[in-house]
């Protein structure tokens, strides 16, 4: 019995190059140089690199906003400029690019019409997204008066309107408070669990470690490393043991002595540290009272994003 064919990669780039030209058509900046990139379908993929390394340029080429100078690029099996392929893509840019005079509801209605969503489907999803992003109380306020974090939430909502198969998130946690950042991570994990492909760029390496299964590291337009996160980060020259701290310190001493005798080296003994994020979130959760101000998500995840309701295709 033959195995089912593997899904084609969501994004495939071969020897991708991008050189920006000046007014006289002379090469000015070589932003991407010979990048071979493959984002497997259904993976949560991080594109990492310092500022100016070419990450955003690659993302914009994937969206068809910039054109490769040379090399090939395929997105969901089609050209990046394919209008039909964009029906399955959601994009959150690094800067929230919203119309300041529109309210969140009007913004999402506009983007829903761009996707060609039926009115009933759009209305339902907009309601769910506003609840998920904690913007229900501000649904009819002009976005121009929002803080950066609230504008970011509107941007996130418009990126998810079409229940995309490929989600591109450029610095998704930028401007968000810790609860918002946690919500983004939970959202990414939920989308990944549903088989969606998520590509994110971020400077927050701890966040990337929490959610991504594969990464690529870019510097100066060159791809330095690419692969599964565990394979890249695992240090096979060291081994850790983790066990509950015994109440009797003498038992711990005996265990350490046993390891010392068996391996002929001095083991390093330390207590693991709790991460700041769960500590912070637990404190806030216990302290939260009704009527608290700010963005307060009322729903963990929009039902349609969690694969809840079955809807007619648009």
């Amino acid at each position: 019995m033959t195995a089912p064919p593997a899904s084609p990669p969501a994004v495939r780039a071969e020897k991708l190059c991008k050189t920006f030209l000046d007014f006289w058509r002379r090469p000015r900046v070589e932003a991407v140089r010979g990048v071979d990139l493959e984002v497997p379908s259904g993976s949560v993929f991080a594109l990492l690199g310092p500022n100016g390394s070419g990450k955003s340029t690659i993302v914009k080429m994937v969206l068809g906003l910039l054109f490769p100078t040379s090399g090939t690029l395929e997105v969901l099996g089609a050209s990046p400029r394919s209008v039909e392929a964009k029906r399955r893509i959601g994009y959150l840019p690094e800067e929230s690019r919203l119309y300041p005079q529109l309210t969140p509801r009007e913004t999402l209605e506009f983007h829903a019409r761009l996707f060609g969503l039926p009115r009933a489907v759009a209305r339902r999803r907009i309601g769910e997204l506003l609840a998920m992003t904690g913007l229900e109380h501000a649904r009819d306020r002009a976005v121009g008066g929002f803080s950066k974090g609230m504008a970011r939430r509107v941007g996130l909502a418009q990126a998810l309107l079409n229940d995309p198969d490929l989600v591109l998130l450029d610095e998704p946690s930028s401007g968000l408070d810790p609860q918002g950042a946690r919500q983004i991570k939970d959202l990414i994990l939920a989308l990944g669990a549903r088989g969606k492909t998520v590509v994110l760029t971020s400077h927050l390496l701890a966040d990337v470690e929490d959610v991504c299964s594969r990464i690529a590291i870019v510097f100066n337009g060159v791809l330095l490393a690419q692969g599964a996160l565990d394979d890249l980060l695992e240090r096979r020259d060291r081994t850790c043991l983790s066990f509950p701290t015994p109440e009797d310190p003498a038992r711990l001493e005996r265990a350490v002595g046993g390891v010392r005798r068996a391996l002929g080296c001095e083991p390093e003994v330390m207590h693991p540290r709790q991460a700041l994020e769960p500590y912070f979130l637990e404190l806030v959760r216990r302290a939260r009272t009704p009527g608290a101000t700010g963005a307060v998500p009322s729903a963990p995840l929009a039902p349609y994003l969690a694969g809840g309701e079955k809807e007619k295709d648009p």
């Binding site: 906003l65 209008v83 039909e84 994009y91 119309y99 983007h111 761009l114």
Partner: peptide
Amino acid sequence: RRGTAALALAKPVG
């Protein structure tokens, strides 16, 4: 210039 065109053109809009 403001980038709102990029966000719209990232959608299925010719």
